[in-house]
Design a protein around this nucleic acid. Structure first.
Lengths: 343, 343
DNA sequence: CCGTCAACTGTAACCGGTTACACGTCGTGC
DNA sequence: GCACGACGTGTAACCGGTTACAGTTGACGG
């Protein structure tokens, strides 16, 4: 049939049908100016009859506010981002905002394209680029934005960063305290800034205690389960099997755990395992996974709160906030007093 | 300072600065009509200098297309929805669309409010209401929409539904084949239509084999981990402990599994356990969880594909598609030939 | 030398709302 | 009887783009 068979109805048609002006329709629907009860009644009837729903795109063009915020993340799925979105959604809903989420695949160019595509559709942006060369990212002037991780230019926008380094250090010290010396690391993607910080922090903590991270014991993954599996296979296939493994995020730890079990190695008896992020299911694994809790959802909520604050008064200088990362010890690194160390 | 210190710049100001008309700016930026190279050059320079980014809200008002689709789900987080969003995002990205996702908390009124709020901001909708009295939901005329689950009025819109009943039946038969007779069920929220269908399908399959579902062995949960834990405690505390448990989704199965372990019961030796959805981590649990695979991401992708098809030609009659649900047997229900049945 | 046409650019209407301002019409106080 | 303010409503400009249509210019064929 006719392709545009049912064109959405506009306010002028409703006005005509109710024999009033568009202003009146608008006033009734928004509860603004004084309206005669009879008029209101008639307008509401016509609106209901015609099934009229205001075009909120047009509405936000004239009101200059969209009641929605754009969220740009490396990906839109998986335990971590899912939890992050939950927090952001919580804050957004509370303030009456909608979410426009998009995944950038960690590509700065794509982030830039998304920012442009979102301009004019959102009142503000929450951006997690997670990539080191994020310098190319440009925010249109006058658009409030909050960054998760590093902003493109320091101090230009408020930002919240996870204490990756501190969290990784805590894991390292915990493993060292348990007596582990032959410790392996499954790192994240090399261009990812969080992954980088975790690796650096971990290595530094080992160094501080006089333990060197053997390059042989460093495998790089991509933050996904499957790469954790692969890493486990690689690590156990070597001459010197590690007594402990630190995976730079929980997803990889989960994959690693499953592979270890299939290999007949028990955790933590044969090898201890720790992750990072403390995603919700970490505690439900068996053994429950030692991880680093970063209050992901809360971070999202805080980011949204800060963005909303920025929407009100533009004056505030861009703060930089660090979200603490605290070690949560569970059975996957259950204590063993002494281990036959390498040295 | 001045609250609106940096008002976003408009196309007319760019036109003035480049000493051309707004039409020319528009044409250069959209690569439409013929433009003199010198003019194009000058315009691009001015655009870059001013950091001008077109207001895509205004753009879509005149072009009558937003390049984005609205997604309304019961929630925006958790393994299931996360996976669903992944599929939808995949399809959207491929077609150059953005996503506007919102959580409705399974409240039909909220779904309705969201639909209204999204009208004019999106070209189409993907809606999962998951609630039985979804009849109150109204789609504005002329707005393409695809439903996951039941549409408000049968045949009004295309829809895709999971074969909940078939999947549940497969689980029941599998458990019966293993010799289980005292089987418990952790059902989902009673107002949830998927949960209802799963329970009905399961019960029917038991009936067909002459096994009755003992009301004592039926505990209702809310689809979340925590309720799975609680259910496990309730079920094991009773006189007749079940030999097998069917949780209406994986999240509850995960909670249940963790509680069973803490109680010192081993799966599947002491009690077999099966879930539904086959979320990505199901295979990484220990023991890996028997579940029902529903190709969640694929369902999202298909829904998006169908929506896009509907955007092109409005003629097509609304199809109703059923997504198969296939049993995936893993170690959590590993075989035992004979069990001491109840009868 | 003129008409024709292609190339390029500008003007203004339009998308669908909101709202400042203007314009009746009454009720009321003096 | 009149001025005045409150109330109810309409007109039209505006938000920031797109684009149909209408020039203007210069090249080129006849």
């Amino acid at each position: 049939m006719d392709p545009k068979s049912n064109p959405s109805i506009s306010i002028r048609e409703v006005a005509a049908a109710a024999r009033v002006s568009v202003a009146t329709i608008s006033r009734v629907l928004n509860g603004k100016g004084p309206i005669h009860p009879d008029t209101r009644q008639r307008v509401l009837e016509v609106v209901a009859e015609l099934g009229y729903v205001p075009h909120s795109g047009a509405r936000s063009l004239s009101t200059r506010r969209t009641s929605s915020v754009g969220v740009i993340l490396p990906d839109v799925y998986g335990e971590f981002f899912s939890e992050l979105i939950r927090g952001i959604d919580l804050g957004a809903k509370r303030a009456g905002y909608h979410l426009l989420v998009s995944g950038s695949h960690s590509d700065p160019a794509e982030v830039d394209a998304l920012i442009r595509a979102l301009h004019g559709r959102v009142d503000g942006l929450i951006i997690m680029a997670s990539t080191r060369n994020a310098g190319s990212i440009r925010i249109p002037p006058g658009v409030p934005a909050v960054f998760l991780g590093d902003p493109p230019t320091r101090g230009s926008h408020p930002s919240m960063r996870i204490d990756n380094s501190g969290g990784a250090r805590a894991v390292a010290e915990h493993l060292l305290d348990l007596g582990h010396r032959r410790i392996a690391v499954i790192s994240g993607p090399s261009e990812n800034s969080d992954a980088e910080a975790r690796l650096l922090g971990f290595r530094a903590a080992l160094d501080a205690r006089g333990v060197e991270l053997d390059p042989e014991q460093l495998v790089s993954g991509d933050f996904r389960e499957e790469s954790g599996r692969a890493a486990a296979l690689a690590l156990t296939g070597r001459k010197e099997r590690p007594t402990a493994i630190f995976a730079a995020n929980d997803a990889m730890a989960i994959g690693c755990l499953s592979a270890l079990r299939e290999l007949g190695l028990s955790v933590p008896e044969d090898v201890a395992l720790a992750g990072f992020d403390d995603v919700p299911i970490a505690r439900y694994l068996s053994p429950p996974l030692t991880s680093v809790r970063v209050a992901i959802a809360e971070m999202g909520e805080r980011a949204m709160a800060r963005l909303l604050a920025g929407l009100e008064e533009r004056g505030a200088e861009p703060l930089e906030e660090t979200i603490p990362a605290v070690l949560v010890v569970r059975a996957s690194t259950a204590g063993r007093k002494e281990l036959p160390g390498t040295e």
